[in-house]
Write a protein that binds this DNA or RNA. Structure first.
Lengths: 411, 411
DNA sequence: GTTAAATTTGTGGAAATCCACAAAAACCGG
DNA sequence: CCGGTTTTTGTGGATTTCCACAAATTTAAC
């Protein structure tokens, strides 16, 4: 093995040409990706490619499920840690044949990957060394792309902030801006905000950016950061945008935890609206969700969307009313004083019952009492508070007042 | 029979003396009542009285159930129509023996009654004529009482208005005033307002006053009128004041209808509070109930108490909020547009379901559909509105927004 | 006009609710 | 400590809900 031999010395006009060269040298199909698994270049004259590679080329990005399985399998973590090539055994589930990969570095940062599909042969150790040289040779070209993207990114971010703060004149103007940047963001939109425990470090920003770039659950045309917040514009594509967003957020939080060990991510998202001008509103709503979560904690732990806030949406308003006027709920007062006098838990019982959708069984389990005990207490509540338990209206009012009292105590 | 003979000629020091005289002449126990069936005087040296009379004397008023049965039986209507004596056969249920009664008139108005208990004899026609003379003879004495009462009544009303409008300094001051008027009104209080279709006539005022004076369901220490409104202070005596008030109002409305053919009485009552100073608040709340009933009509037809208004209590606030801000419920919007497009009734279905306490059977009956149809629609609603039907919070929000939209449309 | 989708109605079985009634157990005031 | 009240737990049976599945019907779309 000649250590000083480098088959990739010299200049290449484009990364495509380079990919072809690598492919020729290694006699295998080659794919070059950026740090976020977007396709940068691929070798053209290959006789065989596996389904994963085909899909990658078609959509110009590695399918998310492939990325996920490469994370689980350990290849990507390894590539992010070391400059050595990594061999990945076939993964049938996602149509992945056997391949070898190497990461492309700039200083201490991974800026891309080269993938070599081992179609009907296996790379020799010598060829693995060549692959490392290929990674080095690719560095400058990949970097150029990277810079170009960053510049564009800055302009886009500026636009995003204008949208978030409502400093944009007309819908038409916005469309013109987006077109100028080759953005194909189409309504409806919702603003999603992730809030971390502390201000974001560069490291974290990169990791977050990576997750956002690689997700394909829903289009995320714009994103930016603000202190502890990551703000993104999501463009749900299904008829059930809320569920879509919910799923995205949950999987995002899970990945942050699994892959980067970042826990304690709060999240909120605003309404899903059709117009660009309502992005501001959606942003405000997302922030409102986060503010409420801060206050109410567990109460709305699994709620992310403004729409799912339900009655909490107007709690700030009600609280204001309550504080200035003499807002009392005699029924609640009676229950509270009964609880005090008899050391009982009628208020909590009622609240829990409603928290669990008026389901007797479930509530009884949560409270560790017999179902009959629960119904007995409810009858008692009806007596004491002079409440008609068949009247939704009255029940709702009591429920709201209980929650409002809690809210007041904390707020 | 000597037509010019009058056994009751001459002066009497007191009505007691007069009652004894009548009793002597007719050889029967005698009771004299004012127009509201309050005891004015009774003959003392009687050997036998029936339970009804005993109760009347003990409590200084005719028991309400006795009054009720006398209305049903027809005696009182007859007495109010004619100056002739009326014989009432025994009514076992209420402990009423056979008796003869006559009304005492001043101009065209009945100001009292004389009751003669036929213990072990029956009045002769001649004695019946004497009884008519007795009624005439009693007139002046009864009238004096009447006037005295009216004067007091005026002072009391003035106090009541002060309470209703909050123009009273301290609790002590109020107690002093009440003591000075020999009023034994003790908290807790609630203000009840009956609102009639048109301004009250003198005739109606008398009838209403009659009903209020004769009711014994709960103490009504004060009352006054204001245009179409009759305002009263009620002092519930049980542990369940709301139910007590509800019953009172329903029976009052029923009696207005049965006895005086006055329909279309609206009613509202405010909170039940312990302090005199909160009478004003209770009054405001009672008026708020009436205002809401005007707007919402059937929606809250059977609601009288402010406490039973439930969520409607804060609808004015919410509406204001809705009108100034961009308050939208995308879920509701989606349902509405779906309804429009497919000529369906999803919104109404949901609303009805909640109006009927989430009871499938009942709601299906009301909507005239199969229960399974209802559940199908609910699932559909959950899909379209992206609503979690197991989340009380979200359901409540939608319900409120539906009602709020209705309220807005009318208000 | 045919086909596909959405809606309504039906059936059946497991689970849950509702209700009345009653036996324990805990609590309270004298 | 007793006796009465309140609270908890238990039992049983009629009714209702929940769910899945399917037939019948209506509606919408091409």
């Amino acid at each position: 093995m000649r250590n000083d031999y480098d088959p990739f010395r010299g200049e290449f006009d484009s990364l495509e040409e380079f990919a072809d060269r690598v492919s020729d040298v290694l006699r295998c199909p080659v794919t070059i990706e950026d740090a976020n698994h977007r396709l940068i270049a691929y070798s053209a004259h290959d006789d065989y490619t596996d389904p994963a590679r085909t899909a990658t080329i078609i959509s110009r990005r590695v399918p998310e499920k492939v990325i996920n399985s490469l994370w689980k399998q350990g290849a990507i973590p390894a590539l992010l840690k070391s400059r050595e090539p990594v061999r990945v055994p076939p993964i049938e589930d996602v149509g992945l044949g056997s391949r070898v990969a190497v990461s492309i570095w700039k200083n201490d940062e991974v800026i891309g990957f080269i993938w070599v599909l081992e179609t009907n042969r296996t790379l020799t150790p010598e060829e693995m060394e060549w692959l490392k040289l290929a990674a080095k040779a690719a560095k400058n070209k990949v970097l150029q792309l990277y810079m170009r993207k960053n510049k564009k990114e800055e302009r886009v971010q500026e636009l995003f902030w204008k949208l978030l703060t409502g400093h944009i004149a007309t819908e038409d103007e916005i469309r013109a801006h987006l077109a100028a940047m080759q953005m194909t963001a189409a309504p409806p939109f919702a603003v999603v905000v992730f809030r971390f425990a502390a201000d974001l470090t560069n490291e974290m920003e990169r990791q977050i950016s990576y997750l956002l770039q690689t997700t394909q659950q829903l289009p995320l045309p714009l994103y930016t950061t603000d202190g502890r917040d990551v703000i993104l514009l999501a463009a749900p594509k299904t008829e059930q945008p809320l569920r879509e967003l919910q799923r995205f957020i949950e999987s995002f939080a899970a990945k942050m935890k699994e892959r980067f060990h970042i826990h304690e991510v709060q999240c909120g998202f605003g309404g899903v609206y059709g117009g660009y001008r309502l992005i501001e509103k959606s942003y405000r709503e997302a922030l409102a969700v986060l503010a409420l979560k801060e206050k109410l904690g567990d109460e709305i732990k699994s709620v992310y969307g403004y729409a799912q806030l339900g009655i909490y949406q107007f709690f700030d308003f009600l609280l204001e009313q309550k504080r200035q006027g003499e807002w009392t709920n005699p029924a609640l007062t009676k229950l509270q004083s009964y609880d005090q006098k008899h050391q009982s838990d009628l208020v909590k019982t009622f609240e829990t019952f409603f928290d669990h959708n008026e389901n007797v069984q479930e509530t009884a389990d949560v409270l560790n009492v017999h179902p009959n005990t629960l119904t007995y207490r409810l009858k008692r509540i009806a007596d004491i508070a002079e409440l008609d338990l068949h009247d939704m209206n009255q029940k709702i009012k009591l429920y709201i007042d209980i929650k409002l009292a809690k809210y007041e105590a904390r707020g």
